[in-house]
Nucleic acid binder design. Structure first.
Lengths: 177, 177
DNA sequence: TAGTGCATGTAATGCGTTACATGATTTC
DNA sequence: GAAATCATGTAACGCATTACATGCACTA
């Protein structure tokens, strides 16, 4: 995989032919929660993948508005499957500024520190609404696409639950202190 | 906050004076799970923060081996607190290649797709061991530092539990199909 | 005395995001 | 007819990682 968008492009095309614009739109509704992608990566990579023979582009203009949809070639599907089966080190990288703030919350008075936990809870509640909105969208998703959406909802619910529990615990401790 | 390491540096110095090397070592045992930092960021930023008067460096060589430890100034503490209290958009960004693979697992035969879930479970079990190792390290942590470590352990346990449940569900579904 | 850990530092590299440019089509 | 959406594309920018350079101190 040449770069970070490569598997996203091959993967999304395995679910159906799409334009670069479609890929970006789909990413923004699905993988962006754990794997983002921008136009600046997608368009150059599509052309590179076509040169390499992993995808095939076809002009499909809407009237005189240009449009090019890509489909996976046999070689592209093989490449995708080989990535899915690969054993190497897989990347997990989180940047979570809310956690970072909680980590240093000892520098604040206790009541203000607790607000940070409340804020985290509120933000995940908002994410949960977004995810339910996606879940309610019409159309059947492939099984594992759906599985990952379930994961997102379950994870987000877990986060809000954790915040609630910790707030109770910390506030309880304050009462008995 | 000028860049991504700034809050980490100010935050860690709020817990005690440290050298750049110490900061990197501490980050690698703590925040790196949700906020990484490299030497290439830390050393230049320490000097910038000193120029700005947010930290104060003092030479503290070990024999003839040079060493410089930094402490937070009053201005630095204010900057940290103001960041902790800031209301703006806070960044949450995940890159999780294991989830990405699960998302596209429909491209594989079912039994191989399930292996991806098993792999995810195994990897989080390994992370859990790492975290227990950190937890077992001697020394008292400040309350919120400890809270975030608890978070890490609880989150990782949740991940393994989720994988176990989904494997059971998916294997059960296969049996009745 | 060889290897590991302590300690600082930077240059090169690689990469992704942001911002901008352009223009057609659909919707209100 | 204005605004939003569809659609493609790239140049500039910012930023973090990687890799390298250097050298002392401790320990097996």
């Amino acid at each position: 995989m040449a770069n970070a968008v490569t598997p996203v492009i091959l993967g999304l095309l395995s679910l159906g032919a799409r334009s670069g614009y479609d890929i970006k739109t789909t990413v923004d509704r699905s993988t962006r929660f754990f794997w983002a992608a921008s136009y600046g990566q997608i368009y150059p990579e599509l052309r590179r993948l076509e040169r390499e023979g992993l995808v095939e582009g076809e002009d499909a203009p809407n009237g005189s508005r240009p449009r090019r949809i890509y489909r996976l070639t046999a070689a592209g599907r093989e490449e995708l499957e080989s990535w899915l089966r690969s054993q190497g080190q897989l990347l997990i990288e989180h940047r979570d500024e809310l956690l970072l703030r909680m980590f240093f919350a000892d520098a604040l008075p206790r009541d203000e520190a607790l607000i940070l936990v409340e804020t985290r809870k509120r933000i995940f509640e908002e994410v949960l609404e977004t995810l339910h909105g996606i879940d309610d969208m019409p159309g059947e998703d492939p099984q594992f696409v759906d599985l990952v959406l379930r994961w997102g909802i379950a994870y987000t619910e877990w986060e809000t639950k954790w915040c609630t529990e910790q707030l109770e615990r910390l506030q309880g401790a304050a009462a008995t202190a």
